[in-house]
């Protein structure tokens, strides 16, 4: 007997990044590494520019000493609606799902790296090595997340394991996923509450309200029309006259 299709709440996951709150402290970066079994970035990986950070904090300088400003901006996979990485994959290892997420399927990936070349945000990473941990450190690995092997691409998944878990639990309890119930590791860790995650389809969610705010913009969207699901809230600075831009 075939059961009727179950009603699946139409979520559309998204994130806001309030740059005005960000201090560049790197708490999100380390929390992500711990949650998602990212390989240890050894010194040589940095030299080769092959270090992994699914979320990173970029820093830009503006102006000259002493009127110089350092600006931080956390960059993670933007989960674009028009993702440049998706059409270039010859094996459909990356695709857009119906919940607004850009998905990477490790099993399908054959490591062409086209997607990384296509990504204007540079948030896709290729496993050039088999990840290794000393035996003792393996105890920490998260059992909910695959340890990616050599030769596949990886990137921010919006902590899909946490989304899955929250949805399963909500369904078990016969309720909807509450706003704020799902916190990717970076969002949970961020001490200044720079990062907010939630359902963009829910007009009352915090993330919906924030992305409709006046300071909201999306990275590179004007130029490339990638339609990211990650919204940035601009840093406030009344000092323009004194700080040289360019």
């Amino acid at each position: 007997m075939v059961q009727p299709a179950q009603q699946i709440a139409a979520h559309h996951w998204g994130m806001t990044v309030d740059v005005d709150r960000c201090t560049g402290c790197q708490a999100c970066v380390v929390a992500c590494q711990a949650e998602n079994n990212l390989p240890i970035n050894l010194e040589e990986h940095f030299h080769q520019k092959r270090a992994f950070e699914w979320i990173r904090v970029e820093r830009y300088w503006e102006g000259e000493f002493p009127n110089i400003k350092a600006r931080f901006i956390p960059i993670l996979c933007q989960h674009c609606e028009n993702a440049p990485c998706e059409p270039v994959c010859p094996v459909y290892a990356t695709y857009h799902n119906d919940q607004g997420m850009n998905v990477q399927v490790y099993n399908r990936c054959v490591g062409t790296r086209y997607c990384a070349n296509g990504c204007p945000y540079q948030v896709r990473f290729f496993n050039y090595w088999e990840p290794v941990w000393p035996e003792a450190l393996r105890n920490q690995l998260n059992p909910d997340v695959t340890v990616r092997s050599r030769g596949v691409m990886e990137k921010c998944s919006f902590c899909v394991q946490r989304i899955r878990r929250a949805r399963i639990e909500a369904k078990r309890d016969g309720r909807a996923v509450a706003d704020g119930e799902i916190q990717p590791a970076c969002v949970q860790a961020c001490p200044t509450n720079t990062l907010v995650f939630g359902d963009l389809n829910d007009p009352n969610s915090k993330v919906s309200k924030l992305r409709n705010g006046r300071r909201a913009y999306r990275l590179l969207n004007d130029a490339l029309r990638t339609e990211p699901n990650v919204y940035y809230l601009a840093r406030v600075d009344n000092d323009e006259a004194e700080v040289a831009h360019g």
Partner: peptide, 14 residues
């Protein structure tokens, strides 16, 4: 498929 469960890849692959 028979039971109307999701068949999105990330249902199982992540």
């Amino acid at each position: 498929r028979d039971n109307g469960a999701p068949t999105d890849c990330i249902t199982c692959h992540f």
